[in-house]
Amino acid sequence: MTGVDVLLLALGAVAVGSAALVVATRHLVRAGLYLVVCLGAVAGMYLVLTAELVAWVQVLIYVGAVVVLLLFAVMLTRAPIGASDDLDRPGWPAALIGGGAGLGLAALLVDAYRWTAVELPEAGTAERLGAQVFGSWVLPFEVLSVLLLSALVGAIVLSRPDIGATGAAATGDRGRSR
């Protein structure tokens, strides 16, 4: 057990614990705040695993943007502030499937890797990752930008009720061509 292992264990425990609270808590807003803790712990694991750029992008996009959007949605849907009792459906199938998937995958990975140790490679800095993105992965990068644009258009079309029915000819054709 080196220092890296101890750090990874601690951050992993924090991530799994707060993720369990996200799916188990009865307060909607607290679920979002526990999600911040979980994503932050995962970003810390990225840093320990020498993935610098991914860690900072995780903090920037997930913790910064996605959680704020989720909290906006919690507020806009007029969620109750206190604990609410009707958040869960009776969940034996959920526990069975979730626990089965999680523990099954964990057993598979433990069996594959045992307690072997590997050397950490060179850090994934922005320079190295940028060379890869704009060298080997240019085409997926561009396709991803087109997908972001279509997601933007789709979100606008979905959330504007006044262009739903009257502009059906125009938006309908555009929606189908996507």
Partner: peptide
């Protein structure tokens, strides 16, 4: 670095996410 630690963490996170969905 023992790769089994982050791998098991990821598997448990996935299971918890599926349970939540």
């Amino acid at each position: 670095m023992r790769p089994v630690i982050p791998y098991v963490t990821a598997a448990l996170l996935f299971g918890l996410g599926g349970y939540g969905v």
